[in-house]
């Protein structure tokens, strides 16, 4: 986890555009991933990611450093995505997120097809989890957050974050059986 953020943050607070670029480059994929998992929609996730950065960078003065910057930012991303979901009043349903976002599967078309199928399945089963379970799994498995930070990001206790994570994993195992 890049703890050199402190120095970059100080420059970003002072309005250094290069520091903003560093922060965005460093955290965009995590922010987008979280937004996409909350919303289940690529276009909405773009907007949510943008909102998250605008909100966070506009509130840098209020970042106190008692959580890591990344956890703080991911919490803002979760809130931006949830607020967008409410505004859109759309149902979170299975979309084809993972399918067109696939990394190059190599030259073997058969392998690529099966990788795509697998990606679609992963996405579909994740989308079927209740939001808190899906977020706990996403933040723990993809972002590597501790249970404490997962709780911080989704707004629950460390214990509840752990329970949500384990319930989510258990459900995924059933769904993928």
């Amino acid at each position: 986890m890049p703890e050199e953020d402190a120095e970059v943050l100080a420059r970003a607070r002072a309005g250094d555009p290069a520091a903003l670029e560093v922060l965005v480059a460093r955290h965009l994929s995590d922010v987008y991933d979280v937004a996409a998992r909350v919303l289940g929609d690529r276009d909405l996730a773009r907007d949510a990611a943008q909102d998250a950065f605008v909100n966070a960078l506009g509130a840098l003065d209020r970042f106190r450093g008692d959580a890591s910057f990344r956890t703080w930012l991911l919490r803002i991303a979760v809130n931006a995505a949830r607020s967008l979901a409410r505004r859109e009043a759309r149902r979170r349903e299975v979309s084809l997120l993972a399918v067109d976002g696939l990394p190059d599967g190599g030259p073997d078309p058969a392998a690529q097809t099966s990788l795509r199928a697998e990606a679609g399945r992963v996405e579909a089963v994740l989308a079927r989890l209740p939001e808190k379970q899906r977020l706990a799994v996403t933040l723990r498995v993809y972002q590597g957050l501790s249970f404490r930070d997962v709780g911080e990001a989704i707004g629950c206790s460390e214990g509840a974050a752990r329970v949500n994570y384990h319930h989510g994993i258990k459900r995924l195992r059933e769904l993928l059986r």
Binding site: S29, Y32, R37, L102, E118
Partner: peptide
């Protein structure tokens, strides 16, 4: 490991 093989790519 299966989940981690499929992160969401930034557009």
């Amino acid at each position: 490991a299966l989940l981690r093989r499929h992160p969401v790519a930034v557009p």
